[in-house]
Design a binder for these strands. Sequence first.
RNA 1: GGGCGCAUAGCUCAGUGGUAGAGCACUGCUCUUACAAAGCAGGGGUCGGCGGUUCGAAACCGUCUGCGCCCA
Length: 878
Amino acid sequence: MTNQRPEADQAGDHSAAATLPTQYAPAEVEGKLYERWVAAGYFEADAKSDKPPYTVVIPPPNVTGSLHLGHAFEHTIIDSLTRRKRMQGYETLWQPGMDHAGIATQNVVERELAKEGKSRHDLGREAFVERVWQWKAESGGQISGQMRRLGDGVDWSRERFTMDEGLSQAVQTIFKKLFDDGLIYRAERIINWCPRCLTAISDIEVEYQDDEGELVSIRYGDGDDAIVVATTRAETMLGDTAVAVHPDDERYAHLVGREIELPLTGRRIPVVADAHVDPEFGTGAVKVTPAHDPNDFEIGRRHDLPSIAVLDERGVITVHGPFQGLDRFEARSAIVGALRAEGRIVAEKRPYLHSVGHCSRCKTTIEPRLSLQWWVKVGPLAQAAGDAVRDGRVAIHPKEMEPRYFGWVDNLHDWCISRQLWWGHRIPVWYGPDGEVVCVGPDEEPPSGEGWTQDTDVLDTWFSSGLWPFSTLGWPERTPSLEKFYPTSVLVTGYDILFFWVARMMMFGLYAMDGTPPFHTIALHGMVRDQFGKKMSKSFGNAVNPLDWMDAYGSDAVRFTLARGANPGTDVPIGEDWVQGSRNFCNKLWNATRFALMNGATVAGPLPEAADLSAADRWILSRLNATVAEVDALYDDYQFAKLSDALFHFAWDEVFDWYVELSKTTLAAGGPAADASRRVLGEVLDVTLRLLHPVVPFVTEALWTALTGRESVVVAEWPADSGFRDAAAEAEITTLQQVVTEVRRFRADQGLKPGQRVPARLDLAGTPLAAHEEAIRSLLRLQPAGDGFTATASLPVAGATVALDLSGAIDVAAERKRLQKDLAVAEKELAQTTAKLGNEGFMAKAPEQVVAKIRTRQATAEADIARITAQLAALPQA
RNA sequence: GGGCGCAUAGCUCAGUGGUAGAGCACUGCUCUUACAAAGCAGGGGUCGGCGGUUCGAAACCGUCUGCGCCCA
C-alpha cells in the first residue's frame, strides 16, 4: 500500500480506495509499518506514567536460537494480550531480551574454534569468554530481527541479556543472599554428568528414553559364598564396594555380614542388607557402586561403604588393569568377555530395553558421577512457590495444569546450580589458603593475596533466568521501573517448560521481592505440531521455518492461524493450507474495506439515531456490540482460539456476506439512507479492525489508517460494547436470509446460472420484509414481473412467497427430490418432538423453557410438512 | 511401575444434561462492477465399544480397547 501518510487523508476520501490494489500484498506493508511503530515509540513503556501498568516479560529465547513456530505461537499470544491492554489504556510493557544459554552457546563457539584446530583451553578462560562475546555481537540473537518480522510490540529500548552488567549484579546479589541464609551449600553428591559437555547438568536437563542395552547376570564369590547379581552396567563392577540384598530375603540371609570376592579385582566386598533392594527384581541381589549410581550412593551412605571411582570425566576407565583407558561402552563388553572367560556369566539378556538418561543438549548418555557441586536448598523456596498457587495469589491457566505444577514443586530435589563451563556467571566464592570459603556480594571486594582463588565453575543459566521478572526491571536497585512494573501481570509459556523456569521464577521472585509473586497469572499454551498432530522435529522432517510462511503469506496469516488453534493448554496443529486460509481472510478483509472506501464509508460524526437506521443497519450494529462483548470476555479468559473464531465468523459470515451485500442496494439508491449506511459501514469496519488488530496487527493497521485517516490503530481505543441490541432487527434479517437462501437453493437445483436474471413476483405481506424487496431482488438477480409473467414455480418460505417465471418447464424431478428430502427431515422432526411431548416423564420433569422449545419445534415441523406437501402436490406430474 | 490426559465429519479440532458444529478438504454451478486468495448451493458423523444414572447423555458414573504426555 502506498498510503504511508494516512494523516494526510480525509476519512472517506475516495482516493484512499483508489490506492488499494485488488489483492493484499503483506510484504509491501509489514516491514514499513513495524519501523513506523518503533519510531513512534508506541511500544515504549513509561515508568512515570499515571496509567495502570500491564507487564509481560518475554520468556527469554536463547541467544543461539532462531525463530521457530513455538516462538511465533507464544509471541502471537503475548503480543495480542499486550496490544489489547495498550489499547485499553494500560501503561504496557512487553519486556524483551535473551538468555545466555551456557552450554549451548559455549558449544557453538567451541565448534567454531575446532574448525580452526583449537580448543578453548588453547585460548584460556579470559580470551575464550571474550571470543563468546564477539560471537554474540556478530551472529547471536538472530531472533530479535525475526521478532520484528512477526510484529512483536516489545520495548526495544529495554532489551536485556542475562549476562549484562545489571543482570549479573542481580545474580551475584541473590547468590550472596541465599548463601548467607544457608540456602546455598556445597556438597559432594552423585550428579548428572555429561561426558561430552564435561559439565554437571540438573535433573530436568536429563531426558529419559528406552534404550536397547543388556542385562547381565554375574556370579560373585564362589562355593557357598556365591551370589548372582544382575546389571546393565557391568563396567562399573570394578568400583563395586558391596552386594546388597533385602533384609527379609531368606535366600541370602546366611551371607549378610560376610565378605565375598569381587571377580577380576581380587578385592573382598561385604554383603549388606538394605530395605531398598527389591527382592522381586532379578535375583534379588544387587551390586553396589556408590561412586557411579545415585541409589548405590545412598546405600553406601547407609552402610558406610567406600566409594571407588573407576571412570574419568570423559567416561574412560581409570583403574589399573587391562581395562584402563577403555571407553565405558568398550569396557562393558571387555569386562563381560573377561567374566565369561572365567565362567561367571550366568545369564545374558540382550537386547534389554530399559530407561536411560541422556543429555538434553547433546543426547550423550548421562554418567552419574560423584562430585563436589553447589546446590540450592529448595525446600522453603519450593514450599512458598507451591503455597502462592495454593492460596490463589497466582492462578494457573488452564486450571487443569495445576496438579502438574504441584506434583513437581512439592517433590523437588535440591537443585545443582554449578556448571563446569566458562560461559556464564562465575560463582562468587573465593577459597583461601587455609581452607577459608568466602562468598562475595556485588559491592564487596574479593579477598586478595597469596593463595586466594575464585571458584572456577559458573551458574546454571536457569539461575539467572529465574530472576528475569525483576532483574530486567533493575533489581536489586529499587528503580522506578521496578516500582511501576513489578509484579508482572501474566507469564505466558509452554506447559512443557513449566518446571524449567516458571517454578524457578516463582521461587526467586517470592524470595527476593518480599513474598510478592512475580506474576498473578501463568497462562500455559501447548506445543506447535504439524497438520496431522505430530510433533515437529528436524529428524522427522516435518519441521517448518515460520519465516518461509511469513514470506509467502504474511506474518498476519501465520499469527492468525496460530491464534485460531490456541485453546488453553492444548497443542496447536498447523499446516500450510491453514495459513493460506488465514491469508485469504486477510485478503477478504482488505477487499471489504476497499469496497467501503470506494463507496464513501465514513467514521466522521456520531452514529445516526436508531430511528434513522434501516433494519440492516440496526441488525449489524446489534451484532457488532454483541461481538465486542464476546471477544472481551474471551480475551479475559485467554481463549484465543474462540475469540479469533468469533471475529472470523462475524466479519466474514455477517459483515462481508450479508451487511455489505445489503448495503449495495441502499448505497445505489442514495439519499439519507445511503448516508446512514456509509456511516454504519464505517463504524462496523472501524470497530472490527480494532478488535482484530491485536491478532493481525499489520493488515488492520493499513486498513484502519486508510479508513479513519487517524495516526495508528496501535494507539487507538479498544472498542467498548455500547449496549445497543435490537432483537427485532436481528429476527428480521434472519427471515430475510431464510428467504434469500431458499430461493438461491431453488435456483441452484434448477441449474440456473448465478448471474441469470429471472422475472419474479414477491409476496412479502406475511413478513416484515416489505422494505427489503429491492435488496432481495438484487441478491437473487430477480427482475420485475413484466407483461405475460407466468409463474412456473412458487416458493413459500418464512411467510413469504416468491413466484418465478423460468419461461419453460422446470426440472420437476430435481425439485421433487429436494422437497422429498426436506419432507423426510420435517417428518422425523415431527415424530421426535411428538414422542417427547407424549412422554409423561418428560412433561413432568423437563423445565418449562425446554418443553416450550419442543412445542415450537413441533409446530414448525407441522407447518413445514403442510407447506412441502402442498408444494409437491403443485408440481406438474412427470 | 506411578500420575495426568485424549478418543466427535476425510484431516485438525470446538462443544461440561435439551435440534451434532467450525476450519481445511470434497461435489456442482459461476469472472454477478470489493474480493476466483472469491461467490452461491450441496454432500458427509449409529460422537471408540459395552453397561449404568436420567424424562432426556457426545457430555455424568463404571468398565473395556486404543493412543498420547509427564514422572520414576
